[in-house]
Amino acid sequence: MMQVNRDSILVVSATILAFFLLMVGFFMLLGKPPFEMIGMLLTYALGDGYSISQTLAKTTPILLCALAAAVPGRLGLISVGAEGQLYAGAITGTAVVLAAPGLPAALMLPAMLTSAALGGAFYGYVPGILRARLHINETITTLLLNYVTVLWVNALVFGPWKDPASQGWPATISFPQAAILPALPASRIHLGLLIGIALAIALHFFFTRGASAQKIRILAGNRKVGEMFGLNFGTWVIMLMAMGGAIAGIAGIAEVSAIQGRLQPTISIGYGLTGFLVSWLSRHQPLIILPVAFLVGGLVAASDALQLFAKVPAASAIILQGLLFAVALAVPGFIKSMRPGYER
């Protein structure tokens, strides 16, 4: 479990303080009253039921994409493919809905989710096998493959999957009620969040208990030693890449089904990359990813609202996210360097 001690409390409070100061500076540069703006951010993130629902709606894909990056990350792989895998899952999940729109929910939801997971898994498997068998860097292949699925979605919704009734709007038909993920009434908190939390807990045990946990640790620590004792690095690369892909695939279909209600070009606003950063900030630890994803989800939701109501530029959301990540990475190192006895 996460160890809470004086050090981590110091790191967390210093990070929040530094982020706060940078936000103040940022809003002053924009010519907005900083404290009022920060107050609004908090209100829009957590102020009422609606805000919390918005925050959790953004948390869900970020959480799933972070887990998708964390799974191969535990083996020391740097996969930035969650975005592409998310789109792949959206495509294969949607395919089930389009092929059998009349299925009852009890069949539709499992079939749709499974198909999405398989689509995402395939999209992780490809760079996985390229890495395992041909030694092709997984970071490059996952990055490049991201562009491919985004374009596949475009090709489909502009072409064969376009709703004939939509009059030029590039999107599939609206999903039938049976294909919409169940959500809390009058909110955007849907089943995807529950899946994400369950996966985070399951992955925590997968990575810390049991035989697989030890094997992954050995291979991540020293591949040569693992192979000396009969562990196959390539097999694990493929397995974990596919596993991560499956999780991102679920994020994709969840967005399509619960939030958008149909497949259309912009499913994700960079959730894949945000998730990647969340995973690295949390050192690929699922139980730390949970709160970090919530925090970032709140920031994303609130800066969306801020842009709408306080007339700050649209890029503010990205800038604030960037500030948060930079601070979260820099502060622990800075604190460590201030300790007596720190060695260069």
């Binding site: 208990r209 049991g210 035989a211 030890q214 094997k215 640790r217 050995i218 991540a220 620590g221 020293n222 040569k224 030693v225 693992g226 000396m228 004792f229 009969g230 562990l231």
Partner: peptide
């Protein structure tokens, strides 16, 4: 250091790599 130990693991775990790698806990 390069070829025979997993530096991120403890001494006890390094002594037990055969067991751990073959599925022991």
């Amino acid at each position: 250091r390069e070829n025979a130990v997993v530096e991120s693991m403890t001494l006890a775990q390094n002594l037990s790599l055969r067991t751990l790698a073959s599925g022991g806990i």
